[in-house]
Design a protein around this nucleic acid. Structure first.
Lengths: 339, 339
DNA sequence: ACTTCCACGCGAACCGGTTCGACAAGCCGG
DNA sequence: CCGGCTTGTCGAACCGGTTCGCGTGGAAGT
């Protein structure tokens, strides 16, 4: 079951078997066929560990994702799935690492023990010690999201600033004047989560530009928090007629809160935001939102990483995506505000 | 940065360094301290590939999950997360393999190239060629779900038969007489998906036992399919007053269909089923359902696999879980059927 | 017939760990 | 004073591949 056994049966040396299989040196057609036949018969496959040791490449990429403390979102799942599939298409396996911080044991294992050739980082923060650490080491990695200093790195990201602004303009165009912003949990915002930060930023700037009256909220990643958040919004300003959210998991709760308050969507109240389309279509009425192309982002991230692995001297490349707003059924013209 | 370098700096042999770090043979306190100091200074970590080659263990487990063709469900995500965390607690990494069938390339890589010490199989079918293949090879694995011949294998599973039956009894106790069953997509049922098959089975038997009039449906894994399915249900038998579903992803669509049809939940129509609690709490009104303990299952699966890896001769162990129905707000007594 | 060249294949070294057998030094009891 | 035992360390072999340099035999060239 090892290469020596194949060599013995074929009556050739181990190196010849290696060359026959890798094609890195010419081998006569006869011996190549003989070797191939034996390999097929025995179902021989070379050991990944031995190969990795010999040529220094593991054919594995690490996917660093946040620990379970945060609830997972549907977007993350689509993302993981597409990364694994795209990696398989390039003959890479995917090793999962549930890492928060750079000092994390699991993260150290990936790098220190050289288990992976490169890494994809999810859930980027504006100041991200993992990203900085990898960059300092020159370790091949691609970030999903932009840090505060993105120019020199490889990344695939959504332009959250532009997306939040697009939502604001959409609502303003419909005549809404008092709009709330429902962000991810406060803890994520404080620790500098890029989507939460840039989204808030884009929302605030665009709202100022359009002269809207706004309030911004942080909201836990679950339905109950969403419902509570909506109650606060209507309590703080009952004249609010629309909201923008980045918080998928709270969406159901927001809807529930609106139903409880007797606000009909979209007649009395408009809802929009940035959400994976699977979620946008699950709620009733379906959410008008900028659809997060999670699967495409996963694929792009793998493509970028593979390119970086193949050409270690290649200059950084980036993809900054701005998906359009899909018009569904949750927004409409502003009516007469209830007071 | 390799063990020879450490040995050189400490003025000892490579084997001494190895023993000092692993503790498999006694090393004098002096030399151990000297070696440890150098290791700490240099931040040395042994190469995973070399270690795996030498001792035949990769410290990695494979997680075989379905390819993206199927939509992922929230349950799967919780599951993956908990597996990764539980594995990390046992000092194992997790390698993802998006495999459907036994002949799959990615699956072959896991086994043939000996990338993993053991595997966890998700999305089990009653006749599962992957599970049989692994069993035939004696390869350490734990299934999430039961095949048709479960007695000799290691698994963690829900008792879908009992859960579906519990839903039926719950509805029957509330006085419902005409009940629909909304299953996973037909293609999954036909290919022998165990949750779809056993759930259908448990539903049918329990309904017969209670003398209910039932209809069973397959439904695509998305909101639009759920809505369409509900329309068919009311079209086929407008007197239907309740449904049981296993289909998380269709749930939002089912609710939407009910709203469109003017059926109020739970006054006019009761909904229950087997669903991860995160989803059950997202819809309005919150779903009375048997909550799938995905995170717990992931943890148990890893525990079982680690036990099997540590004691290769251990007899098979299983966990068959029957979570209780969480009473929320989506079921109520049967009213007068609308005709 | 004698070089020249090329195509093929071989042996050995190497990747970076682990592990086994052996050996030296120190201590003990007889 | 000598044999036996323990403790600590070393050298070498091994895991299963890849890769480099060299040797050989046959065909081609003059």
């Amino acid at each position: 079951m090892n290469i020596g056994e194949i060599a013995r049966r074929a009556g050739v040396s181990r190196s010849t078997v290696s060359y026959a299989l890798s094609g890195k040196r010419p081998v006569s057609e006869d011996t190549r066929r003989k070797i191939q036949r034996i390999v097929d018969e025995l179902g021989y496959q070379p050991s990944a560990s031995a190969r990795a040791l010999a040529n220094g490449r593991t054919s594995t990429i690490g996917l660093v994702f946040p620990p379970a403390g945060n609830h997972y979102t549907g977007m993350q799942l689509d993302f993981i799935g597409s990364v694994v599939e795209a990696a398989a298409a390039h003959d890479y396996d995917v090793l999962l690492s549930p890492s928060g911080v750079d000092s994390d044991r699991s993260f150290q294992r990936l790098l220190g023990e050289r288990r992976v050739d490169g890494a994809i980082l999810m859930e980027i923060r504006l100041e991200d010690d993992r990203a900085e650490h990898l960059a300092a080491l020159g370790f091949p990695s691609v970030a999903i999201g932009r840090t505060a200093h993105p120019e020199d790195g490889w990344y695939v990201a959504l332009d959250h600033t532009a997306l939040a602004a697009a939502c604001v303009h959409h609502l303003a165009d419909l005549g809404h004047r008092r709009v709330a912003f429902v962000n991810r949990p406060e803890q994520l915002l404080r620790t500098g989560y890029e989507s939460a930060q840039r989204g808030l930023d884009g929302f605030t700037k665009a709202a100022a530009e359009r002269g809207l009256t706004v309030r911004t909220y942080c909201c836990g990643d679950d339905a109950a928090a969403g419902q509570a958040c909506l109650e606060r919004i209507l309590h703080d300003d009952p004249a609010t007629t629309a909201l923008v959210t980045l918080n998928e998991a709270a969406l159901g709760g927001l809807y529930r809160g609106l139903a409880h308050a007797g606000r009909h969507v979209p007649r009395d109240f408009s809802v929009t935001g940035v959400v994976a389309n699977r979620w946008a279509e699950t709620v009733t009425p379906q959410l008008t939102a900028a659809d997060v192309p999670a699967a495409e982002m996963g694929r792009l991230a793998v493509d970028l990483l593979v390119e970086r692995l193949d050409h270690s001297d290649a200059p950084p490349r980036q993809h900054l995506l701005v998906p359009p707003i899909s018009l569904r059924a949750s927004t409409g013209p502003a009516g007469v505000p209830q007071t």
